[in-house]
Simulated scan of single mutants.
Amino acid sequence: MTEKSWDRVPIDAQSIDAPLSQAAVFLVVTVNNEQAALATVCSALDGLDDLVKTVGFRDLSAKLSCIVGIGHDFWNRLGVDKRPQELKPFAPIHGAVHTAPATPGDLLFHIRSERTDVCFEFERILLDTLGASVTVVDEVSGFRYFDARDLLGFVDGTANPTGRDLPASALVGQEDEEFVGGSYVVVQKYLHNMSAWAQTPTPEQEAIIGRTKIDNIEIDDDDAPRKSHKSLATIVDADGNEHDILRDNMPFGRPGQREFGTYFIGYSRYLWVIEKMLQRMYIGDPPGAYDRLLDFSTPHTGITFFAPARPMLEELVQAAQKQLATVSPTGTTPR
C-alpha cells in the first residue's frame, strides 16, 4: 500500500497503534442470548469512549485505552448485513503433536494503561455496566516484564512494525473499503512449563526461539535442520513480500498456583497472515517440523475478532439499537 492511500485511514481507528503499555487486561465475554442482554451491551459499547475519559482523567499520564473486538457470531447478532471480508470463527489446528484449540468469545476488551490500578478500575466499572448480560469466559491481567521480556526470558515483540509500516501491517486498507482502519485480532492464552524450560540449555533455547537470550540478536537459521519460532512466524507471500503483524503480547502469572504464561494478541490487516503463521507453527514447515516452542507452551484459548474503526463501531451499535427498538419485549416485531 502506498503512503498516500493511508491518508484516507480514519484517525480514530481505535487505539491499535498506541505504544506498548506497562499493564493490560484481556477480557473476553460471551453475550447472553436475550434481547435485553443485547440492548445492555449496545448501551455499554455506545458509552465506552466516555468511560475511558471518566477513568482516564484521574491520571492522564496513565494513557488509558480500550480496544473492542467483535467475534463472527456476535457480529451476525448485531443485525448488520455487511461484514469484514475475512472475518470468521477461529479454526482449530490439529498438528501431529500439538493442537491450537478454538474457544468461545463474542467480545474482546483489550484494556491498556501505564498503571495496573487504572486498568482494574476501568474493567470493574465496565463489568458493572454489562452486568448479567454477559458471561466472562476469560480474564487475564498482564504486565510488562523487565525490558519487554516474556517469562521464558526472551525479548518479545522485537519484529513489530513501526512508523508507517505499522498501519500498513495492522489496519485494513482500501481492499475492504467499508472497513478501512479496522483490524483482525487473534488471541491465544499460552501456559508455560517453566520447569522443563529451565532444564533446557540456553543454546538450545536460543535455537528454538531464533534469537540470543541476553542481547536479543537474531540468529540466522536458514541452513539449520529445523526452523526456529522466529522463522516459522515470518510470513512471505508468493511474490516475496513479507507480511508483518502487530503483537501486544503480555506475560501473566500466579506463582502460588504455578501458573506462568504469555497472552498472545496479534493485530493484522489480513487475517490470513496470522492463520498461515499458526499453521506453520503447529503443522510445521516442512510438515512435522513444528515449532519446538510448543513443547513448552500450551495454548488454552483461541479466538478471532475484528476491531472496527470507531465510526464503524458506532454504526454497528446504532443499527443494533434501531433493530431492538422495533422488537417487542416478547422478542417479536410489533405489527
Rank of each mutant, 00 (worst) to 15 (best):
K189I: 01
E175Y: 10
P201N: 07
D215H: 11
P255N: 09
I235V: 14
V185M: 12
D156Y: 00
S183D: 13
G253A: 02
H192D: 02
G163L: 09
P225Q: 02
S231H: 07
V187N: 05
E178I: 00
L166N: 06
N241Y: 09
E178A: 07
N160I: 09
V155T: 08
N216F: 00
T162M: 11
V186A: 07
R211S: 07
R269W: 03
P167E: 10
G182Y: 01
A224H: 15
P203A: 06
G240I: 12
E206H: 01
D248F: 05
W197F: 03
T262C: 08
E242Y: 08
T234W: 06
N216D: 15
E242H: 12
W272S: 11
V236Y: 09
N193Y: 02
M250K: 08
P225S: 06
I214M: 10
S231A: 15
A224D: 15
I265T: 08
G261I: 05
I217F: 08
F260V: 11
D156K: 03
D156Q: 07
R258T: 09
V273R: 04
R258M: 12
V236N: 12
R211Q: 07
V185E: 05
F154Q: 07
Q205I: 06
W272I: 05
R258H: 12
Q199L: 13
T234Y: 08
K227P: 10
G181Q: 06
R254Y: 11
S195K: 14
T202R: 12
I209R: 04
I217K: 15
E175D: 14
L166Y: 02
N193H: 10
I217S: 13
R258F: 08
Y263C: 03
G261L: 06
V155R: 13
Q188L: 02
D223Q: 14
E218D: 10
I209P: 05
A233C: 14
G256K: 07
N241M: 14
M250W: 03
D239Q: 14
